[in-house]
């Protein structure tokens, strides 16, 4: 399975990751290795089999739509990389 540099960079962009120029060859080689190996799934005898999404039977689980208030805001904001006035601070998004 040949993966091009452009393809790798496109995938990285989709995943919000940056890959440095000096890492590209390594990532490409790893990805090709793994995909070549993973290709074996295409030889598996799965004609006509349905897909399985989870390990348990898929069924909806409902609960009552009740409001529960989480009051411990301080413990949430304690993890914020940047905060102001008890809110998460992010860079300006509207020019």
């Amino acid at each position: 399975m040949q993966v091009s540099k452009e393809e790798l960079l496109h995938i990285a962009k989709l995943a919000d990751l940056e890959i440095n120029e000096n890492e590209i060859d390594n990532y490409l080689a790893n990805l090709e290795d793994i995909l070549n190996f993973a290709n074996i799934v295409n030889n598996a005898p799965v004609e006509g089999l349905n897909i399985t999404i989870g390990a348990n039977e898929a069924k909806n689980v409902f609960r009552k739509d009740e409001i529960k208030v989480f009051k411990d805001n301080d413990s949430l904001l304690q993890n914020a990389p940047d905060e102001a006035q008890h809110m998460f601070r992010i860079p300006k998004v509207i020019e």
């Binding site: 993973a38 295409n42 005898p45 349905n50 897909i51």
Partner: peptide, 12 residues
């Protein structure tokens, strides 16, 4: 080619 096939193999 990969994800859907893998989910079928999961059934297998």
């Amino acid at each position: 080619a990969y994800y859907k096939k893998a989910q079928q193999v999961r059934t297998l």
